[in-house]
Design a protein around this nucleic acid. Structure first.
Lengths: 223, 223
DNA sequence: ACATCATGATAGTATTACTATTATATTTGC
DNA sequence: GCAAATATAATAGTAATACTATCATGATGT
């Protein structure tokens, strides 16, 4: 799997960039350091000017890769969900037992992420922190409907749909497979956020992880 | 209940405003029209200047009530959760059967909101739309921890805690009462958002409402 | 009648989110 | 090896945002 991923380029909707950042040193530098900087100062305070200073490049050069910071963030989140989708596909193929497949899938979308080292310019662990704190903001804008039509959220929906299929395999009669799948994926992000900032309204902690909560939940619901 | 609520003033953390907007005509006008304007153009595009134009008042006058638009939004969301908490308390007291109590609570935090007419300057139905689209943004900032210490999110946490208590009444042995409660409340908002914008990954629709999904979920989990 | 307070009007600042232009490297194609 | 094409850097400029500050006006209260 390591080798496969390092040979495989994750493809992102080309409406999200002006120039493909994967094709140049500067582009990859923009990706790498935008992740670090957004994590450091938050997306609201993040600007192309600050990023330019960080990578000792110019604001105007960054604009040649991305129209604006929102599209850069959607690019990064698409990258993340592609990476998840890839690992999800890999972890669940050739698993014949539906319950076992579901467990593996739930684990993958709920567990803590660690950097996978195959992509030197993307630190998945930091990227995951950005997803936890910023992903829903990419959806919750006045432009969702247009951006959805443009396919900006296709990868995310594909991840959810894979989970929907697995849920249906486990219990074809359960009437809310879609809502359950989207609840697990988005809910896990939210629980991770609560764990870090509003600890009193979550059971997650260093010991107790999201995987257990969601595995228990889905098994009972689909039983 | 109608009468009670109209006599009762919802109290908001006084660090959220410079001058209490409930104490003047202009203040109530700010509340009323900020809700309408945020719903119309979204929080990102919302500015005090635009609000001033809408209410034929001056930008500088609005700054006498709220330091910035973020605090205004946190004020509005606190108002909303206070209103929910009040109705939640009312709907669940004197209900002896825990399951019935849980059902009522779940209904209250998941169902579609309709304007309640007791507060002429707050349209709860529009406010609910703002909550669906903007609430998590008030949490997901670099200032969460400080603002949490200041008590900005106390009312929200109180709503969750009421639900936690009811969940525990139904099943004292269930180990994830906190995560379940926060999942239901935040998840319901998210499902409403999906219903309006990413319909393919939710089962909610005009017919099928969030209440059924979450009632079914919690009953199975706590059985 | 006077003081206080709320609101309005205007001006000003630093920052953001860009666009445009020109200059300077670097790559590549022949 | 050199010209042409391309990428990047530097600079300037604009409109909007998110404020702060000051002063004028008008209403209220004693």
């Amino acid at each position: 799997m390591q080798n496969l991923l390092s040979n495989l380029k994750i493809t992102i909707n080309d409406k999200l960039y002006v120039k493909d950042p994967e094709t140049s040193e500067l582009g990859r530098n923009i990706l790498k350091n935008s992740i670090i900087l957004i994590d450091e100062i938050g997306f609201e305070a993040f600007t192309f000017k600050k990023l330019g200073e960080k990578i000792q490049s110019n604001e105007s050069s960054i604009y040649r890769y991305f129209e604006n910071k929102h599209k850069l963030l959607v690019y990064l989140t698409s990258w993340y969900w592609s990476w998840i989708e890839y690992r999800l596909a890999f972890a669940t193929t050739n698993v014949s037992n539906p319950i076992e497949k579901l467990e593996k899938a739930i684990r993958l979308v709920t567990e803590n992420v660690v950097d996978d080292n195959t992509t030197p310019h993307i630190n998945e662990e930091i990227l995951n922190r950005i997803i936890v704190g910023e992903f829903t903001k990419t959806l919750m804008t006045k432009e969702v409907d247009n951006e959805n039509k443009e396919g900006f959220f296709l990868v995310y929906k594909r991840v959810i749909n894979r989970l929907i299929d697995i849920i249906k395999e486990v219990n074809p009669d359960y009437p809310y497979a879609k809502s359950l799948a989207s609840s697990v994926v988005e809910g896990a992000l939210h629980q991770h956020f609560l764990k870090n900032h509003l600890k009193t309204i979550t059971n997650l902690s260093e010991k107790e992880c999201a995987t257990e909560f969601y595995t228990d939940m889905t098994k009972k619901i689909l039983a």
